[in-house]
Design a protein around this nucleic acid. Sequence first.
DNA 1: ATAACGTTTAGAGTTAGCTCTAAGTCAAGA
DNA 2: TCTTGACTTAGAGCTAACTCTAAACGTTAT
Lengths: 124, 124
Amino acid sequence: MTISQVSQKYGLPADTLRYYEKAGLIPPVHRTESGIRDYQPEDCNWVEFIKCMRSAGLSIETLQKYVTLFRKGNKTLQARKALLLAERDRLQAQIKAMQTTLKRLNYKIDIYDDKIVHCEKNLH
Amino acid sequence: MTISQVSQKYGLPADTLRYYEKAGLIPPVHRTESGIRDYQPEDCNWVEFIKCMRSAGLSIETLQKYVTLFRKGNKTLQARKALLLAERDRLQAQIKAMQTTLKRLNYKIDIYDDKIVHCEKNLH
DNA sequence: ATAACGTTTAGAGTTAGCTCTAAGTCAAGA
DNA sequence: TCTTGACTTAGAGCTAACTCTAAACGTTAT
């Protein structure tokens, strides 16, 4: 698969795919003889994984660390697990904060309904 | 209340409080005769509200718009409600995405547990 | 074989959201 | 009154995460 096909498939700009690879969020992608990227299924899986993690707000730096550990093999299993646990906790806390804000938004919206009804009454 | 007391109370740097005010996320704060900020309870409520919304990821621009509408009075009730509805939908979608990622992280963590057990067995 | 279009790189530019600096003003204690 | 420390402003600087540019090279259709 070419970079533009992968870009299409995952809805990520080609520039971003190159940036992720250069930054080490994705292991080096396979290439044709002439040096053009030729994404293998395994490369696509990395793209999809990183897209998912980025969409939840995991930082570039954290994902770099994860991939760096991954590429060092089995001796980094514990470290990778610790990294994932830390990110999970962060994510859980963030979701909780967002749910609190969501409730508050809903409450505010209800109040707006009341206010609007009240104001329209006054028009007559 | 002085700016440093408000900074303490809400855990936001004084620079950030000034920035929010200058950017219009918070209506102009009350001042002493000599021009020093003297936060009234109503100013504090704005700070707390903006802090909550920012923590859930609402953008500076969106909050500027909301405050601008607010300061124009009752004729903007509908517009403000529409803005809140849009943000609520955005927030709900984001929470959903994060929950998906959370599940995936938990799944991955389980797999790491298995892998670690397997690797440690091989050490003997 | 040449036009047209896709891909490559290094590196510059952009945006959001702060964060810091400098130079000055104000308020309280010795 | 002088010093110390908090406050003020405008504006520069910073970081994360892209996004774009330029110049060169590859591929495909006519």
